[in-house]
Design a protein around this nucleic acid. Sequence first.
RNA 1: GCGGGCGUGGCGGAAUGGCAGACGCGCUGGAUUUAGGUUCCAGUGUCCAAGUGACGUAAGAGUUCAAGUCUCUUCGUCCGCACCA
Length: 812
Amino acid sequence: MDMITMEQKWRKRWEETNLYSFDRTRTDKKLYCLEMFSYPSAAKLHAGHWYNYGPTDSWARFKRMQGYNVFHPMGFDAFGLPAENFAIKTGIHPKDSTLQNIATMEGQLRNIGASFDWEYELVTCLPEYYKWTQWMFVQMYKHGLAERREAPVNWCPSCNTVLANEQVMGDGTCERCHTIVERRNLTQWFFKITKYADELLADLDKLDWPEKTKQMQRNWIGKSVGSEVVFKIEGCDEPMRVFTTRADTLFGVTYAVLAPEHPLVDIITTEECREAVEEYKVMASRASEIDRLSTTREKTGTFTGAYAINPVNGRKVPIYIADYVLASYGTGAVMAVPAHDERDFAFATKYNLPIERVIAGNEGVEDELPFCSHDGHLVNSQQFDGMGVDEGREAITAWLKEKEEGDFKVNFRLRDWLVSRQRYWGAPIPIVYCDKCGTVPVPEEQLPVELPYDVDFTPDGQSPLKKHAGFMNCKCPVCGGDATRDPDTLDTFVCSSWYFLRYPDNKNAEKPFDTEWINQILPVDKYVGGAEHACMHLLYARFFVKALRDMGYVNFDEPFKSLVHQGIILGPDGYRMSKSRGNVVSPDEFVEKYGSDVFRMYLMFCFSYVEGGPWNTDGILAINRFLERVERFVVSSLEMKGEGVYEKAEKELDAVRHYTIAQVTADTDKFQFNTAIARIMELFNALYKYTANNDNINGKLVQDIVRDSVLILAPFVPHMAEELWEMLGNEYSVFNQAWPVHDPAKLVRDESEIAVQVNGKVRARVVVRTDAESDEVQQIVLADEKVAAAIDGKNVVKFVYIKGRLANIVVK
RNA sequence: GCGGGCGUGGCGGAAUGGCAGACGCGCUGGAUUUAGGUUCCAGUGUCCAAGUGACGUAAGAGUUCAAGUCUCUUCGUCCGCACCA
């Protein structure tokens, strides 16, 4: 079979007959199958794209054959940094390069033979899409979920530009010029995802997602139950608020620490300390967050000269600044209890600060300082002495609450989502600033705020759009007076946080989507994409859906009911494919030589889907060989004669057929494609075995099984299955056929061979009736001479029987 | 550093707590073929005294009649860490 010509023939036929067109009338059995859309940064599909889209497409085809009305769209996540950087390097405009890349990739996606319905395609960088991304921003703003405030960015003082974290090297320098990167505050927009922290955490339990992904989101959200305590500062009207999970240790506070970026720092620092504090702030602005949170890194800090008053005992404690305290977590201030916290202990030891025990270990508990265990009770804590750790925490917080110097507080690690980007290639933020009216959202009828084409986006310290007078200067939508636009663009994660809502209604010019329609098609039933999105894209999308639900635009709580992560295809050397390593394998040459079916099945057979693994070209030859073996058998089966014989051999062959159907169905459903294909290989091995050296075959039975085998092969090798299906004399299309269902009765065996263990070691095998009970099996087994020899006259103390599989005799 | 994975033959990988290594690659042997990067069949974890044998799932301990699987410790490795998408 010439795979290449054959595949082209069927792709043409599929397109002409609109085989994959979604039926909008049958929403009762709808199934929304979605792969994460691709980013057109390179013109060609790489192995990773193939690995995401090929197997998932097979799953979608399998579901279609099971009778589901499958909605399977594809599109492009087209805004983003790489196109802009490419433009800075080459002078090619991001819009031109992106649209060119999309055209090429779309052609390739059609050629992998996937069942996408291209009628529903979307491209996020086109005005008809980003109009609604901007609309989303306006809704967030109107519902109090978008807020403008100061936030730090990475700043390269030499390039005079904002850098993405990706552009900052491991040593904290700029990737372009190797200058040390600093942090600078800019006023930027945030989405208040933290408002949904509790629900985002709780609803994880409802999702059919990989447990590890849910765990990662739980940790990312980082709920922590504790107390907020108010410390007055000497000579300052504004108090210092600290968050702590250990209010029980309040009597042991010997100093306090502010993050170097904390707004109080400038107010409270005394003249003598100012120089050291300023110096320290500069140093801290150069350390990365990962470094700052490292528990092994040496703690540093400096005294501000100011003192705080501990509300539980009125004691004066010095206030330091230190970079192990982050402005972005909690209140940006901590109380330090060196006796009962590792980090505080290290810091106090280094700077000679007092260390005072307030928790003693319970009976028999080793309590050398720092003693951080909860297995203790309060000491040196006045009226609270003797209380347990948890009891003390509650009692002290309740007491502070009464005095209005503290309260119970739940804190999250999750931070609000910074969506402003000082870049060109993104959706402009639809906000206008007017001297008279202030911050004004652009009204819906004026959307989209179009991204101008002729913009100078070479880095020079400003957002590129700020330099475009035609874009920046506008009229205020409220008063009509002169006003200016927000010069920033939206984080591309905003575009990808709602695209799955747009697909089913992608041509709607009136609204982002029709609520009633979307409520029928959503949520996405199966979402497939990389695990690297666990904490960001997947969390942002969940937040969007919850926010839109509360605004009344959708009636469901979660975007993705069921989630699967594909693994990563590594280079042949076992390392991640990268140009610099020179281990990149391109799918193209293999697809051109063997066809897309062979390539797809190779990806599905040679790896565990969720694990991935190193590339191995031999596997492609193996699949090619297997498919040739399939074709030879199907062709030869056409000539087979004979029917009516149904003896032991036929019964066995038929059992293999039904076992295969059962296993392939179950495994494919769970994305365990490699084992599903292994079972199909076994079926063909059994078919070959049955027909070899057998002059009295049941040709009718064989042909019947071949028919089923083509059906169960269809999702994995769609083009070839169409060809074989036609060859067998059937009507187009194999994908309009019902998926075979196995007959459990054909699987039942009267007798089973079981393994017999003596003290856990296999000593014999015996054949028993499959439905025999434990007592009966025990008698048969003990009568076996090998077993008797192994028991060797010892006493049987226990007998365990696992039906049809194994018996274990415990002797002493 | 923190968080989350993973670790099984020469290789890719299988194993609801129940006979470790399915299926495939590679290798060995046989048959077919003028020929083969063909096809078909058989064998293939390690060790030895070759068996109704011993050992064997990164290392060490534990729970269990039974552990690759559950628990703890250690080592190695990969991914994410909020401006790559």
